[in-house]
């Protein structure tokens, strides 16, 4: 792996990092000894062709891979310097601190309000006023409030695709995570909805550390501060986004981002 000078210098205010992370699906190794740091209050984009391991890597960052029976994880993932795989770590707490937004928006078949309040309730919050405040704050942070404040109790599934995705972001934000993982959050959206999500990512990094998987290189170039290129389970190169897209160090990266393979 090649890295740019400041990009991976140990450890420039790293919020999350992996150490020699190996992930296996049964006997097949999908992630090969990846060590990558994700800088606090910055956006790190993971790019690479389908099957390169970027989504598997992303899911390791909040222990989502554990939901797949055949997956085995070696190495370590650190959140503020502490292993999230440590026995003393509560997996529910890990997933609260490291929230996730998926490619396909997946609101619950409930009202807009209930979608956002759900996570708060299962985290033991019952004060209606506090819940209402937190719901509004989350919807505002997800840049959705102004569009839906008059119909909070209508079904979430009546929203447009772009609104549903922002609702899912609001739902993730409601439990006040520290890191937000996004797996192709705009790939199913039209350009206007995509732009809203991208603007949102730009605003959210002031408060959160964001890791985003995207197939859209222009999107990675627009929204991220650092970009990591994955290929066949290896981390080929990570660097400041500007540098990686203008002057990549590795030929494989160059070939991929100029469309010469992949």
């Amino acid at each position: 792996m090649v890295s740019g000078e400041p990009a991976q210098a140990e450890m420039l205010d790293s919020k999350m990092s992996t150490r020699d992370l190996n992930i296996y699906y049964g006997p097949r190794r999908a992630i090969n000894a990846i060590s990558l740091s994700m800088r606090r209050n910055h956006v790190t984009a993971l790019i690479g062709p389908s099957g390169c391991g970027k989504s598997t890597f992303l899911r390791a960052l909040n222990r989502m891979n554990e939901l797949i029976p055949s997956v085995r994880t070696e190495g370590d993932v650190l959140l503020d310097g502490n292993s999230i795989y440590d026995r003393s770590m509560d997996v529910i707490d890990v997933r609260r601190r490291v929230g996730m937004v998926f490619q396909k928006s997946n609101p619950f078949p409930k009202s807009i309000f209930e979608n956002v309040a759900y996570g708060l309730r299962i985290n033991g919050l019952s004060d209606k006023r506090v819940i209402a405040e937190q719901v509004e704050k989350s919807l505002r942070n997800a840049a959705l409030w102004d569009e839906i404040k008059d119909r909070l109790y209508t079904p979430a599934l009546d929203l447009s695709g772009g609104q549903q995705q922002r609702l899912c972001i609001a739902r993730a934000l409601a439990v006040e995570p520290e890191v937000l993982l996004m797996d192709e959050p705009a790939s199913a959206l039209d350009p206007i909805a995509t732009q809203k999500i991208e603007e949102l990512i730009h605003d959210l990094k002031k408060q959160y550390t964001i890791v985003i998987v995207t197939h859209n290189m222009q999107q990675a170039a627009r929204v991220s501060d650092y970009t990591a290129f994955f290929y066949m389970g290896d981390l080929i190169e990570v660097d400041e986004t500007e540098r990686l897209f203008t002057k990549p160090s590795r030929k494989q990266t160059e070939d991929y981002i100029t469309g010469r393979f992949g």
């Binding site: 897209f245 203008t246 002057k247 981002i257």
Partner: peptide
């Protein structure tokens, strides 16, 4: 084409 890397340069 929204070129990258050597194409952009």
């Amino acid at each position: 084409q929204q070129p990258m890397a050597v194409d952009l340069r």
